Structure formats: structure tokens, C-alpha cells
Simulated scan of single mutants.
Amino acid sequence: MNAPLKLTDRKRQAIVDAAIAEFRATGFEATSMDKIAATAGVSKRTVYNHFPSKDELFAQILHELWSSTAAMPPPPYDPARPLRDQLHQLLNNKMDMLQDGYFLDLARVAIAEAIHSPARAQEMVARLTEKEEAITTWLRAAQADGQLTRADPVLASQMLQGNLKTFAFWPQVTLNQPPLDAETQRKVVDATVEMFLSYANATA
């Protein structure tokens, strides 16, 4: 059982949550530290004690976005397990991350700011790209094992993740649609796996 957060940690998290809400509502540039303090229910001095600048607060949001993805690394390729089963596990893990409400809130803020100020979000984009490289590494291992006879690992990785995001990320981030229900998640993962195996001439 996790220990309860200390008061200072609760205030820090309240500030981050308030910043996410305000950045989503009005954008980074239009959001003031005063407004963040009011939304968090703390003093402006408390906000600055935790985050000396708005840029550092935004950097914390990007850090949490990265941490939420890094916390769920894909399992390594296992030559003893059927490829289809491993793909299902791989994509189900990815689906769980994409449909997490906190992750989606963080992504909305980061992507919106990346559009308005690409330089500010360069680190986030680079680190998320690095994270998605793990699936490419998994595909290379499967190909080396003779399980994928025609798929280019980089292209295949983009196809697999892009298909999930078409249904389970971009509509939620850009159109504020609700997360997919469990049955729809299952259908999207199942269809993605079967289409990929057909494309890759895989031995499932």
C-alpha cells in the first residue's frame, strides 16, 4: 500500500494538475501563474516555491508525460511464444497507455504547445520517439528469428502504433472524444494484429 503523500507533495501535484487544466483551457502563453495558483487553491508564492517559472512548470508536465510512457516498457521478444500472442500483449499494453485519462490530458497540453512553440516541445517529441523505438526493436528481434519475412521494422512499427492512435489517441486528444470502451479496444487490437500478420507474411 502506497504511503499518503506529504502536504508539500499534494500541493505540488495540485499545481501540476491546475497547470494542465489551464494550459488546456487557454494555452501556455495566455495562462498566468496567478491563475494556476487560484485553480490549485494555493498561494502564488507556493507555486513559485515549487516552480520558479512557467517554463519549468511546463517542463514538469513533459517529464510526467515521459514517465507515464516509460513506466510501461514493452515486453522483450520471446522466440518460444507464438507471435500472435506476443503482438496482442504488445498492443494491449500500448492501448492501456493511450487510453489512460491522465496521459491523454498531458498529451493534449504537450501537443497543443508543440504546435504553437515547437522549440519548447522538442525534448518531449524526441523522448517519445525514443520510447516508440522499443516496438521497432521488438520487431527487429522477431524478424531476426525468421517470424516476419517481409516487414520493414521501422515502417511496421509506425503502422502498428499508428493504427491504434487512429482510433484510441487522436480522436481523444484533438476532438475530446471519450476513451474507447473495452469491447472496442479489443476489436481495434484484434484487427490491427490480423492485418499486420497478413501484411508481414508472418508465421503466427
Rank of each mutant, 00 (worst) to 15 (best):
A3V: 08
L5W: 06
T8Y: 06
K11A: 14
Q13K: 07
V16R: 04
A18W: 03
A19C: 05
A21W: 04
F23T: 01
F23D: 01
A25L: 08
E29C: 08
E29G: 03
E29F: 06
A30E: 10
T31G: 09
S32D: 09
M33V: 06
K35W: 01
A37V: 08
G41Q: 04
S43R: 05
T46S: 13
V47N: 00
V47C: 09
Y48H: 11
Y48N: 13
D55I: 11
L57E: 06
F58Q: 05
Q60I: 03
H63Q: 14
H63Y: 09
H63K: 15
E64R: 06
M72D: 12
P73H: 09
P73A: 09
D78M: 07
D78S: 04
P82I: 08
H88E: 03
L91W: 00
N93H: 11
K94S: 15
M95A: 13
M95P: 01
D100L: 09
L106Q: 08
A114S: 14
E133V: 07
A134N: 09
A134K: 03
I135D: 00
A141G: 05
A142S: 04
Q143H: 07
Q143N: 04
D145S: 14
Q147I: 00
A151P: 01
P153W: 05
V154D: 13
L155Y: 11
L155Q: 14
L155H: 07
M159A: 15
M159L: 14
Q161P: 01
P171K: 05
P171D: 14
V173I: 14
L175E: 15
L175Y: 07
L175N: 08
L180G: 01
L180K: 01
T184Y: 07
R186M: 11
K187Q: 14
V188K: 07
D190P: 03
D190N: 14
D190Y: 05
V193C: 09
M195E: 11
S198Y: 09
T203K: 12
